[in-house]
């Protein structure tokens, strides 16, 4: 032990195998993180949020109709304050009921979930769910 210290490699754990493993993990993490970020810098073209809404299965909860909604951002920038509006239209195209919710943030390529409540049965009407707007954080 004393000899090891005396060699000039001051750290007591200078040449241990675990140290090299830890350093290898650190190097891999550093490369993956900076690599991913720089890849995004090169390929990212600053496209505004492109948001798609996917409605889930309609269920009833205490007499109201619930529709889960999944939103995905296909653009390359984060949308904040994303307003999602669901509308029920009758045969003549008149809006008979409206429901909405707002998402704080929708990062690029990420998916967030929310839900809409309707008093009328969406099965009897034409349902449309669409994102109406966003702002940049």
């Amino acid at each position: 032990m004393a000899g090891q210290r005396g060699t000039g490699h001051g750290s007591p754990w200078a040449q241990s195998a675990t140290e090299w493993i830890a350093a290898g993990v650190g190097l891999a993490a550093l490369l993956v993180i900076t690599g991913t970020l720089l890849f995004e810098v090169i390929t990212g073209n600053g496209h505004p949020p492109r948001i798609s809404a996917q409605a889930g299965e309609i269920t009833t909860q205490d007499g109201v109709f619930h529709i889960p909604v999944e939103l995905t951002n296909h653009g390359s920038r984060t949308g904040a304050g994303v307003l999602v509006v669901g509308e029920l239209r009758d045969g003549e195209g008149e809006v008979v009921e409206e429901a909405e919710f707002e998402l704080d943030f929708l990062p690029p390529r990420s998916t967030r979930r929310g839900g809409l409540y309707f008093d009328l049965d969406p099965h009897d009407f034409e349902l449309s769910i669409s994102p109406r707007g966003y702002h940049y954080p």
Partner: peptide
């Protein structure tokens, strides 16, 4: 070299 190895190990710990 030792300093670089230490820095990498510290980075690994933080990331994990």
């Amino acid at each position: 070299r030792e300093d670089v190895v230490d820095a990498l190990a510290a980075y690994a710990v933080a990331v994990i």
